[in-house]
Write a protein that binds this DNA or RNA. Structure first.
Lengths: 365, 365
DNA sequence: GTGGGAAATGTGTGCGCACACAGTTAAATT
DNA sequence: AATTTAACTGTGTGCGCACACATTTCCCAC
């Protein structure tokens, strides 16, 4: 059936059906098989039926290495994130971008990062426009400010450009894929961790701390989850008070300290990452060991207070892994036409004093 | 300097230096560059110096896709694990093997699983010999029974065959790499989780449950960590009692029930995965809500008791990810001569009622 | 100086796929 | 009927690397 001079290599791995084999079985050329596989047109009904009937009998799985090597075309992906210089959280995301870049390099994919801030020349909208000038084939975005993000999505929709969101989901958007955490559930988890071993009255603060906090609607989901946990699961008396704090206000630290000093407070849940260490510092300065502090992410400063016991738990959002996965979904869509999940929710990782080092030193995070 | 007819493709991605470019810069043929890169010999000192001086100036990074496609040789990796049919933990590992198989297929790597039990014809030694008949280029092993494993390592050492260990480290072994958890630290973590919110006397059992438990020396590390935590961090009175239980003994369940019924017991730490649900069942049947139960791994039955609150925490050893990573290290060593870490310790993942689903549904675990 | 063998070097082919272009055939237009 | 055009098919080349084999050069023995 085949040439006798040598056992063809594909017979050594019985699974590896090639385009050449399909062409022979269908009685057409390799070019025709390629045209069918990629819907390139210019294929007669007769040839199309021949090839399809072979494809229906045989599990053909393209060699993705060869496909990438043979492809004439390169792809560009733009990644839009908040400015990493001022926030260790986004710095972590940036290192994920660099890692993904190296990973996809040999596949002919270029990944370009763009950084935005809340307002002005470096706002999300202007940065998005600038990134479009580079003619990307797709975009990966962490949209943390709600109203600005909407304009960007409209534009991308008009252009028919695929985009992936991570970190923050915007319900009105139509991304190829969203990668993040179930925020409501992370609030439930925080509630559970707060309540462990507590059998008498609790007085708890939920602090939403940041800049332009009113645009950050996703924080309310965490609070809802937290309150839901207590409502459903806890029978002793509980008082939960939520407060918005703007880091740019002159009295920010003073207000924070007044709250920490309140002798009634048994727990504080901070819904973001960066300010957790500020809260922990004030707790430490005021020797408030009785306060159980829960926040998000293993930023360097958070980690230190965790190891010293001033922070009880951090819920890891794994931002680095999120952007790596987001880029991976976009690339798999562009290069291989792979189906990617509409939504991918990450594990809610509980970080505490005696497991934090295992996360820091681990190679898979 | 180069042909004028078309911009050569490599100039479009300025980082992609090829063997062809090195050959031109060094004034030798591509075959000679290949011989230098791979230390094949038959290269004169003059040519060697020419190539090396170019390599010292230029960051050459081989295209690993092209390398795999061009390589005539295929590799085989054998994976040795305990029989998965009787333990959901190893069943999870097996699904990791299948996933890794698909992942490395296009790179010309075949991955063969072999299953062993404690004694007899399917013992680790006999299975290891059988796997050697298939002439693997490397092995990935989960060695859970200490004495048998030593014989296998000696044999592999004689043969000069590289091997990777996962799940259990054996100090006398010389693996290419070990992937697992810091067992002592996982015991510390269990201790921390057990103590949260407890301010009065605790009476805690540490249960080592399994078959041939005396060969499973690694369980003692977990106990040591647990005890260390309590000694260093807890000031109220604590009694910790450790007990070995053999699942094959006729009085196993009766003994277990007697312990659970003891009204003093406030917590139970189970050092393995499978029996945690048995303990939880007995706790439930005896309505012992006051007992905080901590064990390992999100096996299906453990997960159910966790969601119902009868298990408080599970520490995830992530066995599936371990074997995937172990295979990845072996393959990277064999195919690309990459340096792989001597030891890779995984994060100590805390699984509890309100984050277990996020792990189950997540795509990255 | 000549011949033979070993070392060294260069060249061609293959891996599986993508895709441009040459060649063929049928249909449409003049 | 002759010519042109569009649809269709097959073939050749390239991607970057591995590596077998052909060719050249060098060295040593006679």
């Amino acid at each position: 059936m085949y040439e006798n001079s040598k056992t063809p290599k594909f017979l050594m791995t019985t699974k590896s059906i090639r385009i050449k084999d399909i062409a022979k079985l269908a009685g057409v050329s390799e070019g025709t098989v390629d045209r069918v596989l990629h819907n390139r047109g210019n294929v007669s009904i007769i040839a199309l039926n021949k090839v399809n009937s072979v494809l229906n009998e045989i599990h053909y799985k393209p060699n993705l290495l060869a496909r990438s090597l043979g492809r004439a075309r390169n792809f560009k992906v733009s990644v839009l994130i908040p400015e990493p210089k001022t926030d260790a959280y986004w710095e972590e995301v940036n290192s994920g971008i660099i890692q993904a870049s190296a990973e996809w390099e040999n596949y002919g994919v270029t990944i370009d990062p763009f950084y935005y801030v809340h307002d002005g020349e470096l706002s999300l909208e202007l940065i998005a426009n600038r990134s479009l000038n580079a003619k990307p084939d797709g975009m990966v975005i962490a949209p943390i400010f709600y109203p600005q993000a909407l304009h960007v999505f409209s534009r991308l929709q008009e252009l028919g450009l695929p985009y992936v969101l991570f970190n923050t989901n915007i319900p009105e958007s139509k991304p190829l894929s969203f990668i993040g955490q179930d925020l409501f559930q992370s609030g439930m988890l925080a509630g559970q961790l707060m309540s462990i071993g507590n059998i008498t009255r609790e007085d708890i603060l939920i602090l939403h701390i940041g800049e332009s906090i009113k645009d950050s609607v996703y924080l309310m989901e965490k609070e809802k989850g937290f309150r839901e946990f207590y409502e459903k699961n806890v029978h002793h008396p509980v008082s939960i008070t939520s407060i918005n704090l703007d880091v740019n206000e002159s009295l920010f630290k003073q207000n924070l300290e007044d709250m920490v000093k309140d002798k009634k407070i048994t727990g504080i849940f901070v819904s973001t990452s960066k300010p957790v260490s500020t809260v922990a510092q004030i707790i430490q300065e005021n020797s408030r060991q009785g306060i159980r502090l829960i926040g998000y992410d293993m930023l360097p400063e958070n980690k230190n207070y965790l190891k010293n016991g001033w922070i009880s738990f951090l819920i890891n959002q794994n931002p680095k892994r999120q952007v790596i996965q987001g880029i991976s979904h976009m690339v798999n869509h562009l290069l291989f036409n792979k189906h990617v999940p509409c939504t991918e929710l990450f594990p809610l990782e509980v970080i505490t004093q005696h497991n934090v080092d295992s996360y820091i030193t681990s190679g898979i995070h």
